[in-house]
Design a protein around this nucleic acid. Structure first.
Lengths: 230, 230
DNA sequence: AGGGCTTAGTGCATTAATTCACAAAGTTCA
DNA sequence: TGAACTTTGTGAATTAATGCACTAAGCCCT
């Protein structure tokens, strides 16, 4: 609770804070000054008690009878999530997806500038994509050091993903966002998050089939995306 | 348990089945015939009891003292997930990401052919990307009918995402994969899964910051990706 | 044939997450 | 000032998910 003994925010709550943040940024953009847990709950599509409990992990920043202040809460969530600074990203794998992500402004705009992209294919090395030149995966260590990279994004083919991960870890990276549909083997000191688009579709397929079989009176999928393992 | 009163597989288990499937496909490709819950657990990075429990929701398809048969289990998982057939996909939003996804063979190879891509920008309509011509979002209803589309993928900008969702729902789509960083408002009969890349990075950022503050003795992120709300 | 070994299946305890429901604290207005 | 109203913050109950540990089955070898 107090600043001193930080942490013990449940993982489930941590995963929701970015959603709240996104909504609050929208509110701030439309000059909304305050919000209640009910309002945020409606916008986020969750239960109001959950919103209050989640926000209470940050501290006691609301005012009873009034609500929460938008800008203040934005500040607190950003502080908690470590978003008071930028985190540099390197993309490994300069295929369609890798290049699309390197260009993607959603990364930069949220404080995650892509400072490098590498590949192991000589035909791709040297190409330029949106102000970045594709580097050699062998130079990863130098790139990570020189560009102060914090997070690695893997967009290689499945067979290459593990060695991409190994290279990132060898270069000192401890946070990985993996788009390859494989379970990476990494030391427990490294955080990995998997985004497997095929998995997402397969989960949708399950609930879609359920609707068809049960005459559409089946419940729908939980809005929580979850992939990966461990 | 029995075929009759289908369902009551926990959502958490459903989200893991695609991972198991992916691993089993790899095993099959290397001519492995059988596996034990221990082996699959190691490959998936989960607990063996969890594997057994998850698989038991499908039915009692293992042999004690022996294990499970790879191809048979693949079949059962595919049946359960609704993967005995193809599900057609339409992409709404022909930007970088949308086009990359339309080309992405991970969709087709897993039984989700992209049969159409649309946009609302006249400058993009008519362009061709990997054998698909960008259509007008206004024609969505016809496309969904003619191409028998089952799943809509939203890769528009945030402001356009809700109207894209409305158009998909209006066209009769009940499963949506949303890449725009907004919480879509949809009837509960529609399944939505959100993939918000910014959110994933922000979650990584939290655990990364934790490691920095706590001198790297902090635990790392859960491998479960979770985004979205509701 | 039978003992030892392996591994699935599962009841049960534990832990995590969610939701309820209410007291505490503040606002507003007469 | 104080009564009515609003909304937070949080114990406690509930529900969901996890993981242990044991039983039931089948294989293999002598």
């Amino acid at each position: 609770m107090t600043q001193l003994q930080r942490r013990k925010i449940p993982d489930a709550a941590i995963a929701r804070l970015p959603i709240y943040l996104q909504i609050l940024n929208n509110l701030a953009a439309t000059n909304v000054l305050r919000f209640s847990s009910d309002e945020l709950a409606a916008l986020a599509g969750v239960n109001a008690a959950k919103v209050r409990k989640d926000l209470s992990y940050l501290g006691s920043y609301g005012t009873r009878g009034v609500g929460y202040e938008v800008t203040y809460l934005i500040h607190q969530i950003k502080r908690e999530l470590g978003l008071m600074r930028e985190w540099n990203v390197v993309v490994v794998g300069a295929g369609n997806l890798g290049c699309a992500l390197a260009k993607f402004d959603g990364f930069l705009s949220r404080g995650f500038p892509v400072v490098g992209i590498v590949d192991n294919d000589p035909k791709k090395i040297g190409r330029t994509t949106s102000s970045l030149t594709v580097g050699d995966v062998g130079d990863l260590k130098n790139i990570v050091r020189d560009e102060k990279v914090n997070i690695g994004v893997i967009t290689t083919s499945s067979p290459a993903a593990q060695s991409a991960a190994d290279a990132l870890i060898e270069a000192g990276i401890t946070s990985i966002l993996n788009f390859a549909p494989v379970v990476l083997s990494t030391p427990s000191s490294v955080s990995v998050r998997n985004v497997d688009l095929g998995v997402e579709l397969q989960i949708l397929s399950y609930y879609e089939q359920m609707r068809i079989e049960n005459g559409s009176k089946a419940q729908s999928a939980p809005q929580l995306n979850s992939v990966g393992a461990r």
